[in-house]
Amino acid sequence: MAAPGIGLGFKPAHAEAALGQAVPGLWLEIHPENYMVDGGPRLALLDALAGAYPLSLHGVSLSLAADEPPDAAHLARLRAMVDRVQPVLVSEHLAWSTRRGTYLPDLLPFPRSHAALQRVADNIGRTQDALGITIAVENPTHYMPIDGHDYSEGEFFAELVRRTGCGLLLDVNNIHVSAHNLGTDARAWLGSLPLHAVREVHLAGHATDATGLLVDSHDAPVAAPVWALFADLLRLTGPRPTLLERDGNVPAFGELLAEREHALAISAAAA
């Protein structure tokens, strides 16, 4: 088990509020890319956070599903950060965001083919070797059907877990959003994943775009159907370390703590 209880995605705007009090049971998640600097206030903030709360490092750019190995320099920087802050968990996404030296700031889809499984398993292995720990990998958001799948997402994750020993970071909002966008059933999707490997759960808000697609916008409170899906998940797995993400329309720290209380209540009911 990584971190206990309910954590919050850390925003620098909340630095004073988070560091000015000791919230019992709270842990924080950061994007390591934002703190990969040589010195100065960003690194000082990272050290202060690591001194005050358990930290989880949630990468957005390792590009595990790229048809190329992870960038060695990036892995070295990530290893240095792992050594520096001793995180409770390191996680990444089942997606790609780099292509021949270009970085595309998004988490992009790919066909879950036999070749892709081999490549992603190899990239996870390289990452885990470089970091000296196993990581958790997050299920992505889907916005469009892709041709060429040899595996369902659940089968693909089960194979990755079996081959690499990685864990699953289960984003419940991504399940809800993806099931809506691809016209499938969210509960069946949830049940198809290797739930025994869940090391962390993500919860976030979403938006509806002009075409009716749901977008994983992280700019609103968690929606009611996602809370319900979260409760369903915990009935199957029991409580798991769970993170609330808010990246846009970021409210006051206290408002996120109040939303966290709701997650705590659902988690307690499943204990």
Binding site: H142, M144, L213
Partner: peptide, 14 residues
């Protein structure tokens, strides 16, 4: 697909 535009917009906005 409409979904492709979500990816494209996210990259551009990023």
């Amino acid at each position: 697909d409409d979904g492709f535009h979500v990816y494209r917009n996210t990259v551009r906005r990023g």
